[in-house]
Structures are given as structure tokens and as C-alpha cells.
Amino acid sequence: MSNIVSLAARRAARPALGANGGLTSLLSTFANGRRRQGDAWWLKENAELLMILSALGQRPPEAALAAYGAFHAGLEDQLAFHPQYYRMLLGLAVWLEDLGQPGDTAARLAARIAAEGWIEMEVNDLQRAESRFLLARAGQTVDLPGLDARLHRFMARPETFALPNPRAAYDLLHAIFYLSEYGRRPLSLPEPALQSLHMLGNLAWLEQNGDLLGEVCIALHYTGQALPPLWLGFLRGEATSFRIAPGPCEDSSDAYHNFLVNHWLMGSIGETAFGDDYLAGPMRFSIFRPLISPLREWSQALMAQGARREPDYGAMRRACAARLSPEALEVADRGMTESPHFATFFAIFARPVAISGPVRKGA
């Protein structure tokens, strides 16, 4: 019941957006000002932005969506030539029409995808889950027996997510996004899966990775969980730290994704999202990132301990302190005192030599 109440509250508290002109400028920039329309990076960036606005329940002004008119009109031809990209193309059609783009292109794409059985080309369960979700949004139901059980089994191993593993992190978070339909339906997870989210959140905190930590908080929110004040405070601080400069994005390394995820989180919890009046024309995003993260410092210091590694944070803090910067010590200390399940996380992260089995219980 608590999840249902939480979902209702989310729907009632839509984020405040900036002036229509600001959102129009933002969409125009992503559609025309950063990448060549239709290339792989353009598809990725625009799918992410449009998905987030759809998840937040927004309806941009017609002028904002006009930048995608020609692309939307050509999606059927794109699908015919690029069936291997059907998930990306279907997703773009779904999000655009969710946001108010006229037409039923998404339904026609989904009908062809379902009729030709393209979901059978997928090699893993996460891709199948995404396909099922997008097809359902476009009116096509597919039956994939056992899929949910396999996803839940994957999510219910916290040890996986206490170690740096970008593929596993992505799969955990997106499994939750697809199963919850990006917050459109309540999702109740068993305790081991929730602990997996906390392990990943502690890892992101130790790395000071706002991009990953933001997605963890969104996933926690979609499962009806309270957000740790330590994490949320860090992310609110990042929300004021982004810098947007005029000019094209010359490579793939700018902070656009961190920017989008941060606004997605703030909008999801009813705070202002995309509230600025953005520049007209090309823009690039930046945020300060330290060269060496506390996560890396701790990993190197722990590895240097060799057979002396043990699961207790206090003992390892004393043993590793000489190899750690004051910043790395402070971040870990704050995690230990303020971050939920940090002791359990650290007991796995330390990879203690004397412990042979998995560590599941603890603070």
C-alpha cells in the first residue's frame, strides 16, 4: 500500500518547468545543435531527453516538438532500413508521441516489430524487458515467460553491486526502470533487491559519481523508498554546479547525461526540473570532476593490504589512512556515519581475504 500512495503522490506533484521558450531552446539544441541528426550519439542523447520529459509527465509546447517533425515523419523508413536499431527507433516514436507529437507512428512501428518477431534477436533479458515495455506502450503485448523471475533473481544478489561493474549497475537500474514503467506503476521489491540498490548507491557515493547516484535515487524513488539525506544533499549541490556554455559539443565527454539525470531526479520528487531559460543554439555541459576519486584511492589502498584485508571499516581505515587523501577519508567517514548499509557495503568492497562466503547482514 505504501508504494501505491507514493506513486499517487508522485503523479500529483509534477515538477515546475521553466518558461516555454527555455524548454523550446533545450529541445532545439538537442535536436539540431549538438550532433548530426540521426547518428548514434544523436539518437542516444535525444532518446534520453525525451524519455525523461515523458517520465515526468510533461507536454512541451508545439514549438519545442517542431524540431523533431521531419525525423518523426521518417521513422518508418528508418526502421525498414535499420531493424537492428528497432528499440531505439521505437522508443523515440513512443516518447515523441507521449509528449504530444501528432500521429500514430509508434503503433505502426510496434505492429511491424511484433509481427516480424524482432524481439527474438535479443541476446539478453534486459533488452527483452526494454522491448516488452516499449511495445506495450505502443499497444502491442508480448508474452515472455519467466522474464520477470530472471530479472528479480539478478537483482537479488547485493554482492554484485558493491564492486565497480558498470554493466551490472546499468542492468540493475534499467531493470527497475522497465519493470516500474519509469515510475508509472508501483514496484515492490524484496529486501535483497533493495539492498542491491543501497550497495550500488554506496559505491556511487564513494566515487562521488552524481550521474550514477542520481539514477540510484530515481530507482529507489520508483520502488517507494525514502532517499538518504546524504545522497540527496550531494545531488542538490550538483544541481547548482552545472555550467552550460555556447558552442557545439566536440566529443562525447561532456556532462550532458549527468545534467539530464539530475533534473530527472529533481522532477521526480516534485522539485524544479529544466527550469532555466536555456541558450539558443548549440550548447555544451560541464561540471567539476576530480581527477582521482575516493573510490579509486580506496581500491588502491585496499589492494596494497594484500592478505591483511578485513571487512571492518575501522580497522581498514587505520591500515589505509597513510595512503589516502583527506578527501577520500572524509567521504568514507561520512558514508559510514550517514549512508545506509555502508558497513555492509564496505565489508564486501574490501574483499577481505579471510571471508570466503557472501556478506549479506550488517548495518
Rank of each mutant, 00 (worst) to 15 (best):
F71D: 02
A162N: 00
L92I: 15
R185N: 09
P190K: 11
I176F: 13
A110S: 05
R87T: 10
P192W: 03
L89Y: 02
N165F: 12
Y68P: 06
L79H: 06
F161C: 11
G74C: 12
F81N: 14
L92N: 10
D148I: 10
P192K: 06
L197T: 12
M88E: 15
A115F: 13
A93C: 11
L197A: 01
G139Q: 10
S188M: 13
D104V: 07
R112I: 00
G183M: 01
L151V: 07
R184P: 09
L173R: 12
F71P: 05
H152W: 02
H82I: 02
V123F: 02
R185G: 07
W205L: 04
I113S: 02
G69D: 12
S131G: 15
G100H: 10
T160P: 03
E97A: 07
M88V: 14
F161W: 03
N165Q: 14
D148Q: 14
R108A: 13
R87F: 03
A115G: 10
L135G: 01
R112W: 09
R87Y: 11
Q84L: 10
G146D: 07
P166C: 03
L79Q: 06
R185D: 01
N165A: 15
Q101L: 09
A156Y: 08
R112M: 01
Y182A: 04
Y170R: 13
G117M: 01
A73Y: 05
G183Y: 11
Y182N: 04
L90R: 05
M199H: 08
I119Y: 07
P83E: 12
G201S: 01
G183S: 12
H72W: 07
V94M: 08
F177I: 07
E159G: 11
R153P: 10
Y178C: 11
A169D: 06
D125G: 13
V123Q: 14
N202I: 01
R167W: 00
M199V: 05
G100R: 08
L90G: 07
A64E: 03
N202G: 14
A73I: 05
N165L: 02
A106H: 07
A136R: 15
E191W: 08
D98P: 09
A168G: 08
L179C: 11
P166A: 04
L99C: 03
L144W: 08
E181K: 14
Q127E: 15
A110E: 01
Y68L: 08
R153G: 13
R153W: 08
E159L: 04
E62S: 15
L134I: 00
Q195Y: 04
L135D: 07
R108Q: 14
Y86C: 00
G201T: 12
W95Q: 12
G146F: 09
A149Y: 09
G146I: 10
L200R: 03
P61C: 10
A70C: 00
A70I: 09
A175R: 08
A73C: 02
